[in-house]
Simulated scan of single mutants.
Amino acid sequence: MAVRGVVLVPVVALGLVVGGLWWWAVLRLVLIPQQAGLVEGAMAAGGWGLSLLPVHVTASREITRASPRRRSDGESGPS
């Protein structure tokens, strides 16, 4: 259990740093676009692109079916 905590701290810190850099880039593009450059644009676009990834679609450990099992009596369920 202690190993998870040791690994989790750098991951969270990295996420906070990258998130802070993304916000910095977006704010520079919005507030002072004449001074924002290629780095800010790439950082903002990259972060936005990552937000579009379907992270909720991940491999599941349990086997699922596309539809529920049919009832043995052959009748449809309640509407």
Rank of each mutant, 00 (worst) to 15 (best):
V26C: 03
W48I: 06
P33F: 08
V9F: 02
V55A: 12
G74C: 01
V9G: 07
R28E: 08
V26Q: 10
G46R: 02
Q34A: 11
S72F: 12
I63H: 14
P54F: 02
G5Q: 09
A42E: 09
R70I: 05
R28D: 00
R69A: 06
A13E: 06
Q35H: 09
A44K: 04
T58D: 11
W24S: 00
M1P: 09
I63V: 15
V3D: 15
R28S: 08
Q35M: 03
A2I: 12
P10S: 06
S79F: 14
E40W: 03
R28Y: 06
G41N: 01
R69D: 08
W24M: 00
S76A: 13
V9N: 01
P10N: 05
E40D: 02
G20E: 07
G37L: 06
S67K: 09
E75N: 11
P78F: 07
A36P: 07
V17N: 01
L50F: 12
G15V: 02
Q35E: 11
V11M: 00
I32F: 14
W24N: 02
P68E: 13
A45V: 07
G20F: 01
L50A: 13
P68M: 04
H56W: 11
W23P: 05
E75C: 10
L53A: 13
Q35G: 04
V57F: 13
A59K: 12
M1A: 14
Q34K: 09
P10M: 02
G74H: 01
V9A: 06
L16W: 04
P10H: 01
G5V: 10
T58N: 10
G37A: 10
Q34R: 14
E75A: 10
G47V: 02
A2N: 11
S51T: 13
V12W: 00
E40I: 02
A25F: 00
S76M: 09
L27W: 12
G46K: 07
P68V: 04
E75I: 01
V17G: 00
G15M: 01
E62N: 02
A66D: 12
R61T: 15
P10Q: 04
L14S: 15
R71H: 09
L14I: 14
L14V: 15
V30I: 11
L8K: 13
S79A: 08
I63F: 15
V11E: 01
G77E: 09
I32D: 15
